[in-house]
C-alpha cells in the first residue's frame, strides 16, 4: 500500500496559550510543539497498515520551516518519507490549506498513486473539521470522516464511527480518504533507534500559492473567565461525611 498522512504543527496540548499584542496570533515563544492528537493516530494507523500490508507511508504538512521537527517525529515513529510545504504565512484558512495540499498530492500521485490518504478529524488549534473532506473533493476520492475503526479489504475499506447509540458502519471503494479520531489505536512513542534512523530519511521541501482567505480572521480573544464559587468541603478523609451529605442533597444516592 502507498499511504499518505497529512498533519499540522500545533502548540503542545494543554499548554497555556497567550496572544500577541495585536491579537492576530498566539505567542509561540517558550512553547513546545507537536501534531494534533487525532493526527498522531492517523500516523500510527498508517504505520500499522504498512506493517501489515507492506508498502510505504509518506507524511505531508503545510507550515513553517520548523514544522520539519514534526515530520522528523513522524519519521521516527516509522513513516518513510516527509514532504514540507513551507510557508512564512501563519494563518491559512481551511479552503486555502486544502487547495495547496491537493495540488501537491496530485503531483505526488502522478509519480505513484496513493491507495489511502489519512487525516486527523480536525486540528487541535483551528478545529475546522473540513480540510480532509475538501481535499477529497479536489481529488475526487470517496471519504468518511471521524473514523474510529478501519478495516482494509480487497479494493475496498470498511470504516466505522461512534455515535451515541453505538457505531455507524460505512463501506467505501479504494483509493479513499479517511479522517480519523483518537481511539482508533494507541500511538507509539518514537524509539531511540527510530529517532536515529529518522535523521537519514528524506524530507522534500516545496512551496505553494495562498489563494486568499475566505474565512477572514479578525482577531483572537480569550473567552471571559467563568469562575465558579467553589464550595470547599474540607481536607483529606475528614471531608467524607460532608461529601456524602452533598450526594444526598443532589439525590445521587
Amino acid at each position: 500500500m502507498n499511504i499518505l498522512v497529512c498533519v499540522k504543527r500545533v502548540p503542545d496540548i494543554g499548554a497555556r496559550i497567550d496572544l500577541t499584542e495585536d491579537r492576530q496570533a498566539i505567542t509561540t515563544k517558550n512553547l513546545g510543539f507537536c501534531i494534533s492528537p487525532h493526527e498522531e493516530c492517523a500516523v500510527e494507523e498508517a504505520i500499522q497498515l504498512v506493517e501489515k500490508h507492506g508498502g510505504q507511508a509518506t507524511v505531508l504538512t503545510l507550515g513553517p520551516a520548523d514544522a520539519e521537527e514534526q515530520l522528523r517525529d513522524c519519521l521516527a515513529r516509522g513513516i518513510d518519507r516527509g514532504i514540507l510545504i513551507e510557508t512564512d504565512q501563519p494563518e491559512w484558512d481551511s479552503r486555502e490549506t486544502a487547495t495547496a495540499l491537493a495540488e501537491v498530492i496530485r503531483s505526488e500521485a502522478d509519480k505513484e498513486p496513493f491507495d489511502l490518504i489519512l487525516f486527523g478529524n480536525e486540528s487541535a488549534d483551528s478545529t475546522g473539521c473540513q480540510v480532509g473532506i475538501r481535499v477529497a473533493h479536489h481529488l475526487n476520492l470517496p471519504c468518511v470522516a471521524s473514523v474510529k475503526k478501519l478495516q482494509i479489504g480487497d479494493g475496498d475499506a470498511t470504516a466505522s464511527r461512534e455515535v451515541d447509540t453505538g457505531w455507524e458502519v460505512f463501506s467505501l471503494p479504494m483509493p479513499a480518504l479517511i479522517t480519523v479520531k483518537e481511539g482508533i489505536n494507541l500511538p507509539r512513542y518514537p524509539s531511540l533507534r527510530g529517532t536515529m534512523k529518522a535523521k537519514k530519511k528524506p524530507v522534500d521541501r516545496l512551496s505553494a500559492d495562498k489563494i486568499g482567505a475566505s474565512l477572514k480572521m479578525q482577531q483572537l480573544v480569550h473567552p471571559p473567565e467563568q469562575k465558579k464559587e467553589v464550595d470547599m468541603l474540607g481536607e483529606g478523609s475528614a471531608a467524607a461525611s460532608r461529601i456524602v451529605e452533598v450526594f444526598k442533597a443532589l439525590e445521587v444516592i
Binding site: K228, V230, D231, M232, A239, V244
Partner: peptide, 18 residues
C-alpha cells in the same frame, strides 16, 4: 476554579473514606 464542590486531599485517602 471550575468546580461546584472541592476537596483538598489525596484521592487514595479520600475515596476509601467516602
Amino acid at each position: 476554579g471550575k468546580a461546584d464542590y472541592g476537596v483538598i486531599g489525596d484521592l487514595h485517602e479520600v475515596l476509601p473514606a467516602i
